[in-house]
């Protein structure tokens, strides 16, 4: 695992995430959200889970980011009015980060280097999905169908 690549990716991801959380313009925030997810996918590549990284890019940038952008357009009248910013959220977030970091650094069993593992091929993931994870897979399929229909019903024009 490459240290330099790790530093570059983490700076990119965290900067984009921070931009997504704090930028004033909604559209810029949505686009930085997409960049942050590219960074997370790059982390997955670095960790050897290429399939998950590709799935993340596919779902988040190809679908969720475009959905967010469409929602911004459909609720456009509100865009310029977003001036509220709650500073207590910042305090809570910083406190949480400090607490988590402290506890991670205090746990000695976490300072380990990655062992050598067999490459995770798509075939292995497919075999696992079709054998021990068949039921969760079917449930996810059902859930996604239900979510699709639910989303459609929610946004359907009400008849007057």
């Amino acid at each position: 695992m490459n240290g330099a690549a790790f530093i570059v990716i983490s700076i990119l991801t965290l900067a984009a995430a921070l931009a997504a959380a704090t930028l004033r313009k909604l559209m810029h925030a949505a686009l930085s959200f997409a960049v942050a997810f590219v960074g997370i996918a790059a982390f997955f590549f670095l960790l050897g889970a290429e399939f998950v990284g590709l799935a993340l890019v596919f779902i988040y940038i190809g679908a969720v980011a475009v959905l967010i952008v469409f929602t911004i357009l459909l609720t456009r009248r509100d865009i310029e009015k977003d001036r509220g910013f709650n500073w207590s959220g910042v305090i809570i977030a910083v406190a949480l980060f400090c607490g988590l970091t402290w506890s991670i650094l205090k746990t000695p069993s976490l300072s380990i280097v990655a062992p050598h593992i067999r490459a995770l091929t798509v075939k292995r993931i497919g075999e696992a999905l079709m054998t021990s994870y068949v039921w969760p897979l079917q449930c996810i399929g059902l859930l996604l169908t239900a979510a699709l229909i639910g989303a459609l019903v929610l946004v359907m024009e009400e008849k007057r």
Partner: peptide, 17 residues
């Protein structure tokens, strides 16, 4: 990353954020 997400969820007032 989690803290940044929490920050966005707690302090912004726009539902999309």
């Amino acid at each position: 990353l989690f803290s940044i997400g929490l920050l966005a969820a707690l302090s912004r007032r726009h539902a999309i954020f």
